[in-house]
Structures are given as C-alpha cells and as structure tokens.
C-alpha cells in the first residue's frame, strides 16, 4: 500500500495555488507537496518554478538546502543519521560511512530492495548521547554498527 499519492499535476497545481499568496510561499508549498506525494519529483520543481515565476534552479537550490525534501520516494523505512559537530566528534562519520558502504548506497539513497532510506540530518538535539539517529521518527542515541545492523535487519524484516 503506497502511503502517498502518485504524482498528479492537477492536484499539485491546486496545492500550489492554495499557498501561492503567502509571503515566501516556496517552503510551505514544498512541505505541502511533500505531505501529499512523499517526495519532490522533478516535475514538482518545474511546476513550482513556473507557477511562482522563479527559475528551476532556484527551486532546486531550496529543495536541496533542506534535507527533508527528498527527491525520490523513500524506502519502507527511513534512517536519519546526524552529521553535525557533536556527532562528528563522536565517530559518527565513520559509522555512517561503513554502513553506507555495506549497503552500497550514498546519502539520501534507498537500498535496492526498497527497505531502507538513509539520510543525513544536522543535529537532532541529542548531542549529549551522540552519535545519534532517527529511525522512522524515533530517536536513538549512542549508535554503533551493531545497533545499526539490528535496524537494517528489522527494516528488511529478516
């Protein structure tokens, strides 16, 4: 069962129109599209740009600035790893690199079986128990490879 609707130009146009008169409408529109479609496809970028009379590059810049605006549909589960200072100093990058290496994906990508998407975030406010992560919205502190492996297993249902 898909959690989100398929891309629908008319629906998207209506969502944009509903927010277009706001001061600084880009972010509210993108959030609304994300809520509707679960990700921001290329068509959405072109459409938001043309409806707001901005360039596609500008919308791309905004979308890429916020890690929430994923460009492809997420996997069945989402793991967000913190990449900010405190977690960096607590070995976060090494753990992340080795996980990504093993899954053979890059930041923001989804495993080929569609089970898990790994994304970066910048500080979850859990610096005290760095390195930290968010799994399907649930915070996890003091992560290490073992805990992550457990998460991967759970995500894959194995």
């Amino acid at each position: 069962m898909p959690r989100f609707g398929e891309w629908d130009q008319r629906r998207a146009r209506a969502i944009i129109a509903a927010h277009a008169s706001l001061e600084g409408p880009v972010l509210p529109i993108l959030h609304a599209l994300l809520d509707e479609f679960g990700h921001i496809p290329d068509e959405a970028i072109a459409l938001v740009a043309s409806e707001l009379n901005l360039s596609r590059a500008e919308i791309h810049g905004t979308v890429s600035f916020y890690h929430d605006f994923r460009r492809r549909p997420a996997g069945r589960h989402v793991l967000k790893l913190c990449r900010a200072e405190a977690c960096q100093s607590m070995n976060g990058p090494r753990i992340a690199r080795s996980l990504l290496h093993e899954l053979a994906i890059d930041w923001g990508e989804t495993t080929p079986d569609g089970a898990l998407t790994v994304e970066g975030v910048y500080c979850l406010g859990l610096c005290a128990c760095a390195p930290s992560a968010l799994y399907d919205g649930e915070p996890i502190g003091r992560i290490d490879r073992d805990r992550l492996d457990g998460i991967v297993r759970e995500a894959r249902g194995t």
Partner: peptide, 11 residues
C-alpha cells in the same frame, strides 16, 4: 537575469 544557477545543498 536568467537565474540558472544556484548553490545546492548546505554546509
């Protein structure tokens, strides 16, 4: 005046 470029990503 074309606005074809942007800074993508952050940090």
């Amino acid at each position: 005046g074309t606005f074809a470029l942007t800074i993508q990503g952050r940090g």
